[in-house]
Amino acid sequence: MKYLVTGAAGFIGFHVARRLSEEGHEVIGIDNLNNYYDVNLKLARLERLKNYSLFKFYTIDLFDREAIDQLFAEQQFQRVIHLGAQAGVRYSLENPHRYADANLAGHIDILEGCSKYKVEHLVYASSSSVYGMNNKLPFSVKDPVDHPVSLYAATKRANELTSHTYSHLFSLPTTGLRFFTVYGPWGRPDMAPFKFTKAILEGKTIDVYNNGDLSRDFTYIDDIVEGVMRVQALIPTSSSPSHFQEPNQSSAPYALYNIGNGAPVKLMNFIGAIEKATGKEANKVFLPMQPGDVYDTWADTSELFDATGYKPKVDVQQGVTQFVDWFISYYKEPI
């Protein structure tokens, strides 16, 4: 089949594009290669994707409307996996317009392309951040998500709403995936697993927010990719209208799932796993809660499991060890 993968030079996009390529699909990857984090890491991911003869890459901004439309017109994709976005919760406090461009306007451009050129299924990245300060655990796709606490989260919730609108108006099958904290080889430098590992190996301090009293549903990248692959093959269909729909349900060809490990880990335990994998003790600096952060995340993945049979396999110590091994191998010396 022929796929478009947006954000192909990004962490999850790279792994998804590689999995599709390994299975013999034709994959077109796009990314704007911005400098939000180390561009060299993005280029190194792309170098590995270039080993696949059916993979092609284009440097395109999601909010370049004409370029996106031309790409859809020329390539005639069958399915689209939309993982490109401006990431980061804290960064959104300082650079709001990047999120408006990439996450709002860019998402509309992808929806327009999928609708206009009759793509059979759009799978797109949402985020666990849409749950905001919800204290009902675990987080369920049936829960209301009307109070985001960061601009990033608000854009991801907007993506869900606009996707539903296109599913309803144009019968475009769309599936949103609320990703919970994803980590693993080739991970993002702005995320805690990378920052903690780098600092511990260099003997520097690590910042531990809310005095370490946080938990996250850390999910290993291979498990995430397996879930994405199963979801993209499960195309939503229309159903009879109902006045009693849950927030994640619709008569339109629309679906919404949590995708996570389903087992939250205390931040201090995650740091402990890095310490064990590196053989070094972290020098911790305990700090208060940061604006836009949430105390806990925990995915109720029962809906996804019922639909696809998806169940994560990699535990935290195994996943952290594999990440640390990649980090040491890739950088070879402190950066």
Rank of each mutant, 00 (worst) to 15 (best):
E26Y: 14
T175I: 07
Q317K: 10
S115N: 02
G272W: 02
S240V: 13
L20Q: 12
A153C: 07
K198F: 03
D190H: 08
A199S: 14
S140D: 11
K116R: 15
K332Y: 00
P334W: 04
V225D: 04
G84R: 08
R230A: 05
K276E: 14
Y220T: 06
L104F: 12
P148Q: 07
G106S: 03
L43V: 07
S163F: 06
K266A: 11
L177N: 11
K2M: 04
T197W: 04
V285H: 13
S167H: 05
Y37C: 07
A87L: 11
F77Y: 03
D296C: 12
T237C: 07
Y124K: 08
A277W: 03
N35L: 11
P189N: 02
F270R: 03
I221P: 08
R230T: 02
D315E: 09
D207N: 12
Y131H: 10
G29D: 07
L137Y: 15
A252I: 03
T205G: 01
Y3P: 12
E112F: 03
Y117C: 02
D217F: 00
P291G: 06
T237A: 10
I259Q: 09
I110G: 00
M289N: 12
Y91F: 15
R18D: 01
L151Q: 09
N35A: 13
I60F: 03
D213N: 14
Q290K: 14
I12V: 15
T181S: 15
Y36A: 12
T308C: 11
Q78D: 15
P138Q: 07
V80T: 00
N269R: 09
I259G: 09
A9V: 04
S115M: 05
